[in-house]
C-alpha cells in the first residue's frame, strides 16, 4: 500500500523510454571496416602518405580487401553537420583498380582548401574566413575508402592531418609554433594480454613474427583483457588555444575500440584521458556459450588521427 501511495505521489517511471538498438558496435556480425590508417598520420602540403585498412568479417581479418580510394578536395560548408563534405561521397575514385593500400600526396593547397590559409579578399568584399581547427588545432584532408565487401560497398573516411601554419596568431607565436610543433605519429600497441592479473596470456605482441598460440577459455567465462601501448603513444604537442589565444602544450588522449565476433564486452571502447598516464587500458569480456573460435581486434586512436590496430583469436571450449 505504501508503495502504491509513493507511486501515486510521484511521477511514473521513465525507464521505458530507452529503446533497444540492436547489437553493440563491438560485436562483429558481418563485413566491417574498423579503421583506415594513414602513415604518416600527419604530413605537410604535398607530402606523401600511405593508407591501409583493417577490414574484418565473422571469419576473421580480410587480408587483401578490394578497396577503391579517392582523395577528396571538397571543403566542408558550414551547413553540413558532418566532418566531411557531402560532395566527397560522390567524387570519382582515384584508383583505377581496387587495392588494399593507397599512396598519394596531399594536395599542394591543402592548407587553403581545409586549413587556415584563406585566399586574399576580392575587391569590395569582406575577407574570407578560413576553416576552423579541431580541439587539437588540426586540419584534415579526407580520403575515401570504398570496400567492395561481400555485403556490398562499405564506406569509410580517413582524415589525414595536414601540417599548416598557425592562423590568427601573433607572428612570434606563429614562428614558435612552426619551430617547435612536432607532427603526429601513429600510436603503437605493445600487446594484448588475456587475464593480466593472472595467467597473463599474450594474444598479440607488437612486431611479432610468429602468431601466438591461440588461447582457450570456457564458454560463458568472464575474462579481463588488457591492451598495452608504448610509452610514447600519448604524445605531447603544441596547440593554439582559440579560447585563451595562447600557445598551449596538450597531451593526447588515447581511445581503444574493442571488437569480437562473439561474446559481450563490458565497454565498446575504453581509453585514457589527457591526464591519465597509465599506458594500458582494460576491458571485461564474457565469452559466448557457443564453442568455437572468436576473433578479436583492437583499434587504438589518438586525438590527432593517429591509428594502430591488432588482431587476436580465442577458442571457446564447452
Amino acid at each position: 500500500m505504501k508503495r502504491i501511495v509513493v507511486l501515486l505521489l510521484l511521477s511514473a517511471a521513465a525507464s521505458g523510454c530507452k529503446p533497444d538498438l540492436g547489437t553493440p558496435q563491438s560485436l562483429i556480425i558481418g563485413p566491417t571496416i574498423l579503421a583506415i590508417r594513414g602513415t604518416p598520420p600527419e604530413a605537410a602540403e604535398g607530402g606523401m602518405a600511405t593508407y591501409d585498412a583493417l577490414t574484418v568479417d565473422v571469419a576473421g581479418t580480410i587480408a587483401a580487401p578490394e578497396i577503391n580510394w579517392a582523395q577528396c578536395l571538397e571543403p566542408n560548408p558550414p551547413a553540413n553537420g558532418n566532418d566531411v563534405s557531402n560532395a566527397c561521397l560522390t567524387i570519382p575514385d582515384d584508383t583505377t583498380a581496387p587495392a588494399p593500400t593507397f599512396s598519394a600526396a596531399l594536395a599542394t593547397n591543402a592548407c587553403t582548401l581545409f586549413g587556415p590559409d584563406a585566399p586574399p579578399p576580392m575587391k569590395g568584399q569582406p575577407p574570407m574566413r578560413p576553416a576552423d581547427p579541431d580541439t587539437t588545432g588540426g586540419f584534415y584532408q579526407p580520403v575515401r575508402a570504398t570496400w567492395q565487401s561481400d555485403a556490398g560497398p562499405l564506406l569509410a573516411f580517413a582524415l589525414q592531418r595536414i601540417t599548416c601554419r598557425l592562423a590568427n596568431a601573433p607572428t612570434d607565436i606563429a614562428a614558435m609554433y612552426a619551430t617547435n610543433y612536432v607532427a603526429n605519429k601513429n600510436p603503437a600497441l605493445a600487446d594484448l594480454v588475456l587475464d593480466p592479473a593472472g595467467a597473463m596470456t599474450t594474444l598479440y605482441a607488437a612486431g611479432q613474427t610468429v602468431t601466438p598460440q591461440t588461447a582457450t577459455i570456457s564458454a560463458g567465462q568472464k575474462v579481463t583483457l588488457q591492451a598495452d601501448f608504448s610509452a610514447d603513444a600519448a604524445e605531447t604537442f603544441l596547440v593554439w588555444n582559440v579560447l585563451t589565444l595562447t600557445l598551449d602544450t596538450q597531451r593526447e588522449s588515447l581511445r581503444l575500440s574493442w571488437f569480437a565476433t562473439g561474446g559481450v564486452f563490458e565497454h565498446d571502447a575504453t581509453g585514457r584521458s589527457q591526464t591519465e598516464v597509465e599506458p594500458f587500458t582494460q576491458n571485461v569480456w564474457t565469452a559466448p556459450m557457443t564453442p568455437g573460435p572468436v576473433y578479436f581486434w583492437v583499434v587504438l586512436r589518438d586525438d590527432r588521427g593517429g591509428i594502430d590496430f591488432a588482431a587476436a583469436k580465442l577458442d571457446i571450449t564447452p
Binding site: A35, I36, D83, V84, N86, Y140, L155, A156, F157, R301
Partner: peptide, 15 residues
Amino acid sequence: VNSYQDSITGQYNPI
C-alpha cells in the same frame, strides 16, 4: 539512408 565510418573517431556519420 547510409553511413560511413570516420576513422579518426571510429564513429559513424550519417548520410
